[in-house]
Design a protein around this nucleic acid. Sequence first.
DNA 1: TTGACACTTGACCGTCCAGTCAACTATAAT
DNA 2: ATTATAGTTGACTGGACGGTCAAGTGTCAA
Lengths: 197, 197
Amino acid sequence: MTIAINTRDRILEAAKSRFHSRSYADVGIKEICDTALIQKGSFYHFFPSKQDLVLAVIDEFATEWAEGFVAEAFDPSLPPMERISYMIDAAYYWQKSAKEKHGKIPGCLFGNLVLEVSTKDDVLRARLNAVFAQAKSRFEEALNEAMERGDIAPLNSKLTAEAMLAYLEGMILFAKAQNDPEVLYRLGPAIMSLRIE
Amino acid sequence: MTIAINTRDRILEAAKSRFHSRSYADVGIKEICDTALIQKGSFYHFFPSKQDLVLAVIDEFATEWAEGFVAEAFDPSLPPMERISYMIDAAYYWQKSAKEKHGKIPGCLFGNLVLEVSTKDDVLRARLNAVFAQAKSRFEEALNEAMERGDIAPLNSKLTAEAMLAYLEGMILFAKAQNDPEVLYRLGPAIMSLRIE
DNA sequence: TTGACACTTGACCGTCCAGTCAACTATAAT
DNA sequence: ATTATAGTTGACTGGACGGTCAAGTGTCAA
């Protein structure tokens, strides 16, 4: 009970970084236990299954991400369209520094999981969708505010927000394929040209 | 030697559809053999390893795809920008019919594999990049022709082509996450607004 | 007819997988 | 002091994994 919370966190941390840099299927419970310096029985005391673990990882990382550089990018004191380019820049620097640390671009944890598990696990798919929905609304708010201020011509903010997020995920996919964060640097600014309606 | 080519094709076919609708890690050699009605020893006569199989699947599907609806979309007799929207439409109908058949959107085989294996296997990553490079040049040619004809304002066709393909992959990712091909229908047309330089 | 070779069979190998469990320890409330 | 419970240990299960192999069978060229 005393260091138990600590144990749970160590499991979560070990799982998060490994799921992100490799894949869900590729990372075993045993490996996570070894990293967290615990035994299997202890793991299953906290998480009834591997699926429960990855759900917790998704929640953890979504919060960390939303309260971290997403909050920083979508700072209300910034002009709305600048928030969006800040977001792209943040993604670029994040992937770049991850590559410097580990030699490989991990891509987006949520995007990786979506393509890996969507056809096999509806519970995971639903959770990942919820994360994307959150991100989408950030873009949408920024677009609405930009329209109100007359910074951009009128458009469908809901659809354009979705398009922008899709474009971001697509760029990250290409960056990962080429193992080159500069893809984001080259293609990033074009997000501003995207518009629907 | 007589029905051997047939056997190889059956292996390839079984592997292709399974890798596409599930994932590389999730589909075992045994399952592929059962589907192709052969034994393991026979499989390893044609493919020295699972990696060799997936490389062959990538090549097969890339060819089938390039000579199939990509060739149809990028028909030189079509106005260049119409080729691009034809390509989006084709992706939409393809995912839609796949969902009707199997209940789930499989997404793009190449995109799926990129996110699954890029950090773990440079050989696969390189092959997938080659496939994307081919597709990119199709978009690029269309953009160049559109510029020559004065259909669109001058832009960097290489980068814009890459951006468009990234956007397509991003839309497919979202469609898979929501298991809804209509995402492509809603977001597809915005590909025309993408431009770099 | 013989030999070479493409192809096929099915048993087998060692390893890893997610998950289980009975037993143990440490803590905190009564 | 007793009891309940949270946390931990490490051995264990059954099955799946990628891959190997010796022993075949069928076909073709010489």
